[in-house]
Computed example of a mutant assay.
Amino acid sequence: MKTVRNFGFLTLIVLLGAFGAHGDSEEAGYDIGDMATDFSLKNVDGSMVSLSDFDTAKGFLVIFTCNTCPYAVKYEDRIIALDKKYKPLGVPVIAINPNNPDLSPDDSLAKMKVRATNKGFTFPYLLDEGQQVFPQYGATRTPHVYLLDKTTNGNAVRYIGAIDDNYQDASKVKEKFVESAVDAMLAGKEIEVTKTRALGCRIKV
Rank of each mutant, 00 (worst) to 15 (best):
T140Q: 12
K172P: 08
G33V: 04
Y125Q: 00
S171H: 12
R115G: 04
T152W: 00
D77M: 11
N166S: 11
A187H: 14
E190R: 13
R197H: 14
I13W: 05
G154M: 03
E27N: 10
M35A: 10
S104G: 05
I79L: 03
L103W: 14
L15Y: 15
I63Y: 13
V205T: 10
N99V: 02
A184C: 09
S180I: 10
N97W: 09
R115Y: 11
T142I: 14
A184W: 02
T194M: 09
K195C: 06
G138W: 10
K2Y: 06
N97D: 12
A95L: 03
P92F: 11
L82D: 01
Y30L: 15
H22S: 15
F54R: 02
D102N: 14
K119Y: 10
K172W: 08
D164Q: 09
L82E: 03
G188M: 07
V73K: 15
N100M: 04
F123D: 04
D107G: 02
H144V: 07
D102Q: 14
Y86H: 10
N118T: 10
F64M: 11
K84M: 13
P70I: 12
K119C: 09
E192L: 06
K174W: 00
Q168K: 13
G120E: 01
N153R: 14
H144K: 09
L126C: 06
R5K: 09
K58L: 13
K113F: 02
K111A: 12
T140K: 13
L89T: 09
I79P: 03
N97F: 09
A57E: 02
M1L: 11
E179I: 12
E76W: 13
G200T: 01
D106W: 04
K85I: 07
G20Q: 13
R141L: 09
T56P: 00
S40Y: 12
A156Y: 00
R158L: 03
S40H: 11
D45K: 02
I163K: 05
A110P: 00
S180F: 10
T122A: 11
C66R: 13
K85V: 07
K204A: 00
T117D: 13
G120W: 03
A72V: 03
E76S: 13
A116K: 09
T194I: 06
F7C: 00
S52L: 12
R115H: 13
A21L: 01
E27R: 15
D53I: 01
F123V: 07
M112W: 01
A181S: 07
A81T: 05
I96Q: 03
N100C: 05
V193D: 11
R141D: 04
M112I: 04
V145P: 01
L147N: 01
D38V: 04
K87N: 10
K113Y: 00
F39H: 07
M35K: 14
D165T: 07
N100T: 04
F60Q: 02
I163L: 14
N155P: 06
E129N: 15
Y125R: 00
A162S: 15
I13Q: 10
F134E: 11
Y30C: 07
Y125G: 01
L127R: 14
T196I: 08
I63K: 12
T151N: 06
F9G: 05
